[in-house]
C-alpha cells in the first residue's frame, strides 16, 4: 500500500517509492499547491523543490530505500527517520512529499 511518510507511526518501517514534486493539498496549502503544480511564484522555485529530492538522494534516501520513522516532532514539526544506520530529521513539508510502500 502506498502512503505518505508522514502517515507512518513511530517505529514503522517502509520502502521509499518516490519523492513527489508537491505535497498533498492539505500540507502544501492552497497557494503552495497552485505554485507547485503550475510553477507560479518567484524565480527558481521549481528548481529548488527538485533540489530537495537530490539532497535526499545524497543522504541515501532514494526509491527502493528502507526507511523507518523513529519519532515525530510535536506540533507538526519534523520527522526523525532512520536510514542505513543513521538518523535524520526531515521537515514535515518535505516528508509529506515522500511516498512510501508499507
Amino acid at each position: 500500500m502506498k502512503v505518505l511518510l508522514t502517515s507512518l507511526s513511530e517505529g514503522q518501517e517502509a520502502v521509499v517509492v518516490e519523492i513527489a514534486p508537491c505535497g498533498p493539498p492539505h500540507e502544501a496549502g492552497f497557494w503552495g499547491g497552485l505554485r507547485c503544480r503550475f510553477g507560479w511564484g518567484w524565480r527558481g522555485e521549481n528548481r529548488v523543490s527538485r533540489g530537495a529530492a537530490k539532497r535526499l538522494a545524497d543522504l541515501g534516501i532514494l526509491p527502493g530505500t528502507r526507511i523507518k520513522v523513529v519519532r515525530r516532532a510535536p506540533f507538526g514539526g519534523p520527522i526523525e527517520v532512520e536510514v542505513g544506520g543513521s538518523r535524520f530529521m526531515i521537515g514535515r513539508g518535505l516528508a509529506s512529499r515522500i511516498i512510501v510502500e508499507v
Binding site: 518567484w42 524565480r43 522555485e45 530537495a52 535524520f88 530529521m89 521537515g91
Partner: peptide, 12 residues
C-alpha cells in the same frame, strides 16, 4: 523575498 525555503534536512 524570492526563492523557496528549503525544508529541514539535517542529520540527528
Amino acid at each position: 523575498l524570492p526563492g523557496e525555503s528549503v525544508e529541514l534536512i539535517m542529520e540527528m
